[in-house]
Write a protein that binds this DNA or RNA. Structure first.
Lengths: 229, 229
DNA sequence: CGTCACTTTGATGCTGATCAAAAATGGTGG
DNA sequence: CCACCATTTTTGATCAGCATCAAAGTGACG
């Protein structure tokens, strides 16, 4: 792994207070690997070999059952995934594939468990990370069960605007098909929902969404700090 | 706390390898409290004071938004809850209320965090428990997104039969209103879904469900080890 | 300027929620 | 033991949300 990325990884909260020795132990066996778009990184049902961290690009977590598939999350840098499976050494419950070209840091699962037992700072950081991931899933479940698809879209727009610096102009970055899947709706429905939101201050301009009346959007979306991040 | 319960708690995986000293430290500040049915134990949005463990009875986790409420989980002994909020010292994302009279062990949040930092065995056990809880939520999210309500009911019956010893006769224990809520459907729909399942080997006899043809039920339910426990 | 992929629009059907009412169940007191 | 009442459960009718299939529109790019 090159110096630049090493430094980037070192600065992650997960490794913040880990001793130099243990950080080196983790990194000495780790790979930083580039993948093209559309590659399946892990498959549900397999046993975990590595803890994965998205360093660049984006990754989609999904699951299948009886010829149906659903997107459970979309990850951007710097996020760990399949931490719970690594800790328990049990099969993955989700699959993962790259949504764009991506760089993934892969740390052998056994090394993660070993350093966890030796380094209290790493243990603390890891449990914090896992708790954070847990809370994300709970938020996703609440979003799914307590809102309809138009409300999910409206809140996604508000959140994304905040992430992109409250410019009231949101660059999509992904195609609408993927966004639809992320939001738990079909592309057709996303289209119709966007049409709905024009009544609530949102305009769809090519690959951007523009918020023309944020108060109207807020009052429709009813954002909730116990669901949205 | 009485000796009997102390022993029960001591034998939980969470405390299995914790030193006597640290176990006593946790227990010395803990309460074992009885609650009647229908008591709200925690409210979403509040900050955590205690880690909770269901010792007896059952507890419902739920969340509300915009005049809607949804049941996220039903807990039986011995299960921890709100572990993630305790670890991160952040507000609860769910509320909890007793579904029956219940006994709850409450360990001060600060004690949990302190012992975590001092006792590697407790740290290991706690991260294992949190990972297990994480995987439960992921399973719930998949169940919700990948199955319709009849399939959820069919799989619940299969699981409950296994828990109750494969007698092919399942005692409900809770009223159908609560079961419906647990399974993410209205009582009306539960009733209709049960009628549907009579085509697939399930008979509804008073407060019991009877599986008359488990192969038919299995073939309809399509149980999946990556969704069901 | 034509092709191909993506997106939108239209028509239709399924799933599950809601409201209303009937039926079944269970407990209580005469 | 039975009649009565309250509660739970079931049944029926209707409606909203979302998926699906089909077709038309749009835009990027060779």
């Amino acid at each position: 792994m090159r110096q630049a990325e090493n430094h980037l990884v070192r600065s992650l909260p997960l490794f913040a207070n880990v001793s130099e020795k243990h950080f080196d132990e983790l990194m000495s066996t780790a790979f930083l690997q580039r993948f093209p778009q559309g590659i399946t990184l892990i498959r549900e049902g397999d046993l975990p070999d590595f803890l994965h961290i998205v360093v660049e690009g984006s990754v989609e977590l999904f699951a299948s059952h009886d010829a149906h598939e659903t997107v459970l999350d979309i990850l951007k840098p710097m996020t760990t995934f399949i931490l719970a499976a690594v800790i328990r050494d049990e099969v993955y419950l989700k699959s993962a594939r790259t949504l764009s070209a991506a760089q993934i840091l892969m740390i052998p699962a056994q090394a993660v468990r070993d350093v966890f037992d030796q380094d209290p700072a790493f243990a603390r950081a890891l449990v914090n990370e896992l708790a954070a991931r847990y809370r994300c899933v709970v938020r996703a479940l609440k979003d799914e069960k307590l809102r309809n698809s138009t409300e999910r879209l409206a809140n996604w727009i508000l959140q994304e605007d905040a992430h992109q610096g409250n410019k009231h102009q949101i660059a999509l970055g992904i195609d609408k098909r993927t966004l639809a899947s992320r939001l738990g709706m079909t592309p057709e429905n996303l289209s119709r929902n966007l049409a709905q939101l024009s009544k609530h201050g949102v305009v769809n301009s090519g690959h951007d969404f523009i918020i023309e009346d944020i108060d109207a959007l807020r009052s429709f979306a009813k954002p909730n700090s116990l669901i949205d991040q």
